[in-house]
């Protein structure tokens, strides 16, 4: 059981006592052999750990480690650039603008297998706060980051399946509710005009897939 003396001893060892507390505690140490012995034991333990343990470990394939990070950064920057171009083309900065970018088609086509984004309403240009993600399929990770220049929040989905060749998306339609502009249905079409995927939010703003064509 932790006693007040244990707490003081730990804080003394860790250099966390105030200038007032330290002399008082050191006087206690002077007068209490058992406390002094415990202090000595803990100090030796700390010395042993510091002398034999290093938090830093040699990283295997360190150059490859860095280069993969740089590749991911480059991919992010390319995605940012596309978002900026889309924004500059006048498609607006609403939370649905990401759906209009060509790069998202890969994500959208495979969205059957992933949790879709939940975007609470935000003013144009403001960062959309995504409080949580749900990806029912294991191995898929979702994250977002805000691109200030484009005034858009970018959804990144890692681990998606490749787009089947017969699922080329050539059309997209975003239909807003007449009563609530934030409620919208997004439909993806193939080159035959067939519906590949319909995505929407329910009344509780939870994402749902309404349907898809049976290819």
């Amino acid at each position: 059981m932790k006693t007040p003396d244990d707490q003081l001893l730990a804080r003394w060892l860790d250099g966390e006592l105030s200038a007032d507390e330290r002399p008082r505690f050191e006087a206690m140490l002077e007068a209490d052999p058992a406390l002094r012995e415990e202090a000595n034991s803990l100090r030796q333990l700390g010395n042993l750990l510091r002398a034999n343990v290093d938090m830093e470990r040699p990283l295997p394939n360190a150059d490859f480690f860095n280069s993969q990070i740089q590749e991911q950064i480059a991919a992010d920057q390319r995605a940012d650039q596309r978002v900026k171009s889309t924004a500059a083309a006048g498609t607006g900065t609403s939370w649905l603008s990401w759906l209009r970018s060509p790069w998202i088609f890969a994500g959208a086509a495979a969205a059957l297998a992933v949790g879709m984004l939940v975007m609470p309403s935000a003013q144009p240009g403001e960062e959309t706060k995504v409080l949580s993600f749900y990806t029912p399929k294991s191995g898929i990770e979702a994250s977002t980051y805000h691109n200030k220049d484009a005034g858009a929040t970018v959804l990144v989905l890692n681990g998606l399946e490749a787009i089947p060749s017969d699922r080329d998306i050539v059309g997209i339609n975003v239909h807003h509710s007449e009563t609530d502009a934030q409620v919208a249905t997004t439909t993806l079409y193939d080159d035959q005009g067939g519906v590949l995927l319909v995505m929407a939010k329910d009344s509780a703003s939870k994402p749902m897939v309404l349907g898809r064509s049976a290819h």
Binding site: R57, A62, F65, N66
Partner: peptide
């Protein structure tokens, strides 16, 4: 400001410690 090379230097500086922490 978008300088990936500067970030690469930070990665090089701390990769061993971060890897070590994850490893532990």
């Amino acid at each position: 400001a978008g300088d990936a090379r500067a970030f690469d230097s930070l990665v090089t500086r701390y990769r061993g410690k971060v890897y070590g922490m994850c490893y532990h």
